[in-house]
Simulated assay, not measured.
Amino acid sequence: MYDPTRLAALVAVAEAGSITRAAERLGYTPPALSQQVAKLERETGATLLVRSHRGTRLTGAGELLVVRARRVLDEMELARHELARLTGLSGGTLRLGTFQTAGIHLLPPVLSAFRRAHPDVALAVADHEPPHGIAAVAAGEVDLALTHTYQPAPPVPLPSSVGVEPVLVEELVLVTAPGHLLAGGSTRLPLSELAGQPLISMAPDHPPRQGVEAALAEAGATPAVLVETPGYALVCALVSAGLGVAVVPEMVAATAATPVGTRLLEPGDLRRTISVAHRTDVTAPAADAFRALLRGAFGRAGRHRTGGRPDVRGHRDDAPQGS
């Protein structure tokens, strides 16, 4: 049986008239598309394309296979639509709530995967700063909401109709101006070493951060600048300018737009958990499919985040633009 991806590559080359134009259409590089066609030629045992400086043309074997390939691909597309209708994933709208950083850097690759799998489902994304996304799910304003909690913090009560599923857990780390004394060394910095340090206080009245702020105050960090709204880009910029130090999620530190030094803290129990909130009392195929993609993208739920930008099947990415 021939690989449908390679059949689609051959059809694209036949329609575009060149490897380069077909690669642009499919989102491949020309060498990658050439490899797909070469593998198909090995599978068939026949030469399918003839390349020249004027472009690419099909051989007789290629023309025969393209006719059959179009039929196969059409049947597969028809089957996809029929299965989507059967499972409730044809038509309708998936409504998502998100906070800013997740919306910019975590949500897009998963949404792209969802759109490829279920192109007939419309998408709507709304901004819901945690913990307000949970209330939006309970009220039926959105189907799912990305939200977060910080540790230490008291547990957030959930409406009876809402459940939350952890997506990833990350430590909070110290960020400093480049070259700062506290940023040096490879060992964890005891929290007590922050005593007397000027602190850029991240949203001290923001409920999710209050437990973290209390822990920093107990360690003796001295508030120097109060950032009253959740905005990690501003926090990192102020730190970079030497106005103080701050404690932020590890992903934020790794993707800061301004240069900062970073250091892990001891004990490593200051954390942020990003979760997806969903209804537990209704059947929602589109929402369930999206949650499954989130699980696939981030691996085992609750796994500690260590930074980086993996592919669409495993995005672990965030940014300092928001909370």
Rank of each mutant, 00 (worst) to 15 (best):
A9T: 00
A9R: 02
A12C: 10
G27Q: 12
T29H: 14
P30G: 12
A32K: 00
S34F: 01
Q35L: 02
A38P: 00
L40C: 08
R42N: 08
R42P: 03
G45L: 07
A46Y: 05
L48S: 06
V50N: 14
H53Y: 05
T59V: 09
V66P: 06
V67H: 13
A69L: 07
V72T: 15
H81V: 15
L86D: 12
G88D: 09
L94M: 06
G97I: 07
T101S: 15
T101M: 08
I104A: 14
H105A: 15
H105R: 11
L107V: 11
P109E: 10
L111G: 09
A117Y: 01
P119Y: 03
V121G: 02
V125C: 10
A126S: 13
P130I: 09
I134D: 13
I134T: 13
G140R: 12
V142P: 07
V142Y: 03
L146F: 15
H148T: 06
Q151T: 13
Q151S: 12
P154Q: 11
V156P: 01
L168Q: 09
V169Q: 14
V173C: 10
V173G: 03
T176V: 01
H180G: 12
L181Y: 01
A183M: 06
G184A: 15
P190W: 13
L194K: 12
S201Y: 05
P204A: 13
H206D: 14
R209G: 04
A214I: 00
A217F: 13
A217S: 15
G220W: 12
A221D: 08
A224Q: 14
V225K: 09
L226W: 11
C236E: 12
A237N: 05
V239P: 06
V239T: 11
V252W: 02
T255F: 08
A257K: 05
V260P: 04
G261W: 03
T262R: 15
L270V: 07
T273F: 08
T273Y: 04
V276R: 00
A277D: 06
A277C: 08
H278F: 12
T280N: 14
P285M: 04
P285R: 00
F290G: 03
R303L: 08
H304K: 02
R305H: 04
T306E: 10
G307L: 01
R309T: 07
P310S: 08
V312L: 11
D317S: 09
A319V: 08
Q321L: 07
G322Q: 03
S323Y: 07
S323K: 01
